[in-house]
Design a protein around this nucleic acid. Structure first.
Lengths: 213, 213
DNA sequence: ATTTCATTCAAACGACCGTTTGAATAAAGT
DNA sequence: ACTTTATTCAAACGGTCGTTTGAATGAAAT
C-alpha cells in the first residue's frame, strides 16, 4: 500500500532492479501509462533513484530498450558477417534467418518481443529517436544484403517490401509476446519460422497471377 | 493559454467537434498522453461535454474509432458479398483488394491509417475491447473466403499468414499516416497496391526454394 | 581520522489528470 | 404561460504525475 521501500543500501544493483521493473511495466501498460512511482515500487527502490540513474523517464525507456536490443543486433550483424565471408552464396532465406533468429536465442525472449512491439506502437515523439538510434545500422546493412540476392527487385520496391516485412515481424512479436499465457517457446519459434517463409515469398514475389491495372 | 471556450450555444455539433479534435490528438500523441482538457480546448467546447456525450475517456476513444472504421468495414463486407455472388471465381487477389481498397475511398484517408495503426499499438486493456468489437466479423469472413481459394493451406497455417498480413497493413498505415508530409494520396495508393502484392505472395507461398529442417 | 564522492532517502514542488456537481441556459411539448 | 427535457457551463473533487531538493548514509581515498 505504501510507496517507500525498506531501507535499501547496496542490495543488488539498483540500476538493474529499476531496468527490470520498468521493462515489465512498459511492456504491459505502455510508456505514458506507466509511472515512475509504480516502477520504483516494483523495483523496491527510492523514487528519486530513477532520475539519479537515468536522468528522465525517456532516458529510462531508452536504457531499458538498449539493454535488450543491443545483444540481438550484435548477433544479427555477426550472423550477416559470417554469411558474407563464408564463401557460400547468400540467399534471401539465409539473410532473413540471420535477421530473425537472434530473437530465438538467449533467455530473454520473454520480454524482447513485447518490448519491440510496444515501442513501435508508441507516439513518434517517444519511439522515433530510440528506433533510429538502435535500428538504423542493422536496417541498412540487411537491406543492402537483400538487394544483392534480389537483383530483379529495384531499390524503391525493396524498401516497400522491407517495411511490410518489419510489420509482419512486429505483429508476431506482439501477439506472441506475453510468454506464459498460450504461447510457449516452441510456438514462438514456430511463428518465427512461419514469419521467415511469409517474408521470403513476399520479398521475392513469384510474379505469377498478377494483372496490374 | 486559458482552458475555457467562448460561450458555445448550439454552434455546429458539439459531439462531432469533440470527435474531430479527439481523433487528431489520439493519432498524434496516443491515448494515455492525450488529456480530455486538450481535446475540449481544441474542439472549443466545455470540458464536461466530453463526459456528457461519451461517458468516459475510453468511451470517447471507442466512438472516435467506430465513426471511421464502420464505413470501411461496410465497404469491405459489401465488396466480399459482391465477389461471392457474382459468379466469377474468387481469387486471393480479388479478396485482398476487397479487404484493403476501402482504405483508398472516402475522403477520410488522412486520419484512418493513423487511427488503425495507433490503436493496434495501445496496451491491450485499451485496444482489445475495441478491436474485437470492430474487427471480429470482418476478420472471420475474410479468413473463410481466403480458405476457399487457398485449399492447399491448412487453417492453422492460414491463421499465421493472416496475422502477418495484418501486421504488414498496420505498418504501411502507420508509415503513410501523416498525410501531408511526404505522403501523398498517390503514394498511399501505391503503397496499398504493393501491400496487396506482398501479401498475396506470402499467403500463397509458391513453396519454391524451401529447405525446412 | 578525515575528507571525498557516489548513492539513497523522505519530502515536497507545481502542474495536470479524469470525473463530478449543480446551477444556468436553451429548446420542445403541453 | 408553464413544464419538461437536453445541453452547456464554471468550478471544484481527490489523486497522480515527473522532477527537484537537501540532508543522511555509506564506502573509498588520503
Amino acid at each position: 500500500m505504501s510507496t517507500q521501500a525498506t531501507t535499501n543500501t547496496g542490495t543488488a544493483d539498483t540500476r538493474e532492479k529499476i531496468l527490470d521493473a520498468a521493462e515489465l511495466l512498459f511492456v504491459e501498460h505502455g510508456f505514458a501509462a506507466t509511472s515512475l512511482r509504480a516502477i520504483a515500487a516494483k523495483a523496491d527502490v527510492n523514487l528519486a533513484a530513477t532520475h539519479y540513474h537515468f536522468g528522465s523517464k525517456k532516458g529510462l525507456l531508452a536504457a531499458v530498450f538498449h539493454r535488450r536490443i543491443q545483444p540481438v543486433n550484435t548477433l544479427r550483424l555477426e550472423g550477416l558477417e559470417k554469411l558474407e565471408t563464408s564463401g557460400v552464396p547468400m540467399t534471401a532465406r539465409s539473410i532473413l534467418e540471420a535477421f530473425f533468429l537472434p530473437f530465438k536465442s538467449a533467455d530473454i525472449i520473454s520480454t524482447i518481443p513485447g518490448l519491440v512491439g510496444r515501442l513501435h506502437g508508441e507516439p513518434e515523439s517517444i519511439s522515433k529517436p530510440i528506433l533510429e538510434e538502435e535500428f538504423t545500422e542493422v536496417t541498412e546493412r540487411f537491406q543492402e544484403a537483400l538487394a544483392m540476392v534480389l537483383p530483379q527487385v529495384d531499390r524503391a520496391e525493396l524498401r516497400w517490401r522491407f517495411h511490410f516485412m518489419i510489420g509482419s515481424m512486429i505483429q508476431i512479436l506482439r501477439i506472441q509476446s506475453p510468454l506464459g499465457i498460450g504461447s510457449t517457446q516452441e510456438s514462438f519459434n514456430r511463428g518465427m519460422e512461419r514469419l521467415v517463409d511469409f517474408c521470403i515469398a513476399g520479398l521475392e514475389q513469384a510474379d505469377l497471377g498478377k494483372q496490374h491495372d
